[in-house]
């Protein structure tokens, strides 16, 4: 009895609908209260970040590093006598977005095909999909890129851009196919049965019933995958495809501003991927309300 009255009092207290009538609940130990409080957490966080920043700065100072942040904006844009000029970093960012966008679209297509093969129930389909998946997932991305550029490139006579797009698309299609498979499997079996019982073929059932429902299961991990593609696209700088990382490296080899440029490049990636994540989480919420 005393138990239930206690719960009642808490509920009242939380919702603010009435005064507390029961005995107050025991408080957590003071040390926990201290560390759980917002102010203490913020101070601790600021302290840790501060130490790291100061350490880096002091280290750079002791190296006699010559900070030249003022030169950075010019690599984004500048105004010359000819008017507005797009800087190298922005051009690189554009190339990165184009490269990852193209690879991602291709990866979506390949990934869906692989997932459908895997779920087809055909012996050969399943085996091909599983072997592809295990092969791709268990090779380092860098080695895969070398394979695509140095081995398959000369054989099939394609250039470094094609090699990069293909490599990224194939690599991410393996990861996406697992996301698709999980999303499709998350739709309950009764939906398949209902679709077949009105005479739908398997492909109609996929198109009109199953895939539209699996999208809400797939959307969050697919966003993660877009971010992943953008990040892994940096690797194509090793075969000198012009994108953000490559441009950053080129600037450094001209100017020796390695600290500023790498900080800046990292920040640019961060801005793009964070914007994407926030945008998609907004879309997700919107979508969730609708259905």
């Amino acid at each position: 009895m005393s138990n239930s009255s206690k719960t009642l009092a808490t509920v009242d207290g939380v919702s603010g609908t009435g005064p507390l009538r029961g005995r107050a609940l025991p408080k957590p130990p003071p040390i926990k209260q201290f560390f759980d409080s917002k102010i203490v957490s913020t101070i601790l966080y600021a302290l840790v970040i501060g130490v790291i920043c100061y350490g880096s700065y002091a280290g750079a100072q002791s190296m006699g590093y010559n900070w030249q942040w003022y030169r950075i904006p010019a690599y984004f844009y500048s105004f010359t006598d000819d008017g507005f000029q797009v800087g190298e970093l922005l051009i690189g960012l554009g190339a990165t977005i184009k490269l990852s966008g193209g690879s991602f679209l291709l990866a979506l297509l390949f990934g869906l095909i692989i997932a459908l093969l895997r779920l087809s129930g055909l012996y050969i389909g399943t085996k091909v999909a599983v072997i592809f998946l295990e092969f791709i997932r268990n090779i380092p991305l860098l080695v895969l890129l070398y394979l695509f550029y140095y081995v398959l490139g000369p054989i099939f006579k394609y250039d470094r851009i094609t090699a990069s797009v293909l490599c990224l698309a194939i690599y991410h299609s393996a990861l996406l196919s697992e996301i698709f498979r999980a999303g499709i499997n998350a739709v309950v079996k009764g939906q398949w049965e209902a679709a077949s019982s009105i005479g739908m073929t398997k492909s109609q059932a996929y198109r009109y019933i199953i895939l539209p429902q699996s999208i809400k299961f797939m959307l969050p991990p697919i966003t993660g995958e877009i971010v992943h593609v953008i990040k892994s696209s940096a690797i194509v700088s090793v075969i000198a495809v012009g994108e953000l990382t490559t441009f950053g490296r080129n600037i450094i080899s001209d100017t020796y501003m390695s600290f500023e440029i790498w900080f800046t490049v990292a920040a640019v990636y961060l801005v793009v991927t964070l914007t994407l994540s926030i945008g998609v989480s907004y879309v997700e919420k919107h979508y969730a309300v609708k259905t």
Binding site: A194, S197, I198, M200, T201, Q213
Partner: peptide, 18 residues
């Protein structure tokens, strides 16, 4: 599938398309 078009089925769990 031709057969299923002519045989309607109602399930215990309704199985409507949500």
């Amino acid at each position: 599938n031709d057969l299923r078009q002519n045989v309607g089925m109602v399930f215990q769990q309704f199985n409507l398309f949500p």
